[in-house]
Design a protein around this nucleic acid. Sequence first.
DNA 1: ATTGCAAATGTTATGTTATTACATCAATTG
DNA 2: CAATTGATGTAATAACATAACATTTGCAAT
Lengths: 132, 132
Amino acid sequence: MTTPQLTKNQSLVFEVLEKAEGPLSAYTILDKLRDHGFRAPLQVYRALEKLLEYGVVHRLESINSFVACAHPGDNCHSHGIVAFAICESCGQVMEFHDHEVDHRLMGWVRGQKFKPEKTTIEIRGLCEACAA
Amino acid sequence: MTTPQLTKNQSLVFEVLEKAEGPLSAYTILDKLRDHGFRAPLQVYRALEKLLEYGVVHRLESINSFVACAHPGDNCHSHGIVAFAICESCGQVMEFHDHEVDHRLMGWVRGQKFKPEKTTIEIRGLCEACAA
DNA sequence: ATTGCAAATGTTATGTTATTACATCAATTG
DNA sequence: CAATTGATGTAATAACATAACATTTGCAAT
Ligand SMILES: [Zn+2]
Ligand SMILES: [Zn+2]
Ligand SMILES: [Zn+2]
Ligand SMILES: [Zn+2]
């Protein structure tokens, strides 16, 4: 998917996520944008909806948070499942993908005649710095 | 982990999940147990916490719901990461394991010196019946 | 049996995440 | 201009989860 020009609200939300060191909840984003006129959750959720659609932001289901894509410019997401390693101590997120994992998972579901739409892989744990 | 004797509330919550055809939210469980004296969300969440710990129930992060383990008697924790295929139409859940997927994911995070604690793999889509 | 403790439970309130409903505004187009 | 479409603003509410505190229950040590 090619990313169209972002609207004002979309740009504001995206910039907050880009500058952040880790994933943010929608309400945290809202708080950071109050100075820019944001008043209600929906302003954030609507922007996020589009940013997710464009593939420039990911939602981390296991922690109800959002993060800017770590591979800007790539369109690798259209070819495979994205996986995340999330540090539960410092919040750092590593994003990666593995075609063999994709292949195994998609092979299994195809064998069940299941039609996959969206796959979540999230590994919570401790990053190198925090585990030390 | 060996499952100890369930308490009254734990048994009630587990029975509701076992009888259900698909995953249930905590509040749906609460509603189903009002006749048995349940009055507050915490009664459900506390029971779920233990059932998750014992491995007899799984939490589906992407849909904020809970489901009884599909492999009773097995110890899900001993055979690696559990993956789920969740039908977004009828709610049916298929639970499976794939050692190759485990191996690839754990190999990757080990290479990053990341210490994994809990991994979520959830594939949303349409089951065979609903895709037809 | 009584005391003391840990686990489970009950209850109220609150915190957090996400959506519905409806109004308004701005850009495009025929 | 009128109609359409997409974006935005605002208020209210729904859905999910936990905090804080009191009480009860089961059980072991004395
Ligand atoms: Zn990405
Ligand atoms: Zn860390
Ligand atoms: Zn299981
Ligand atoms: Zn189905």
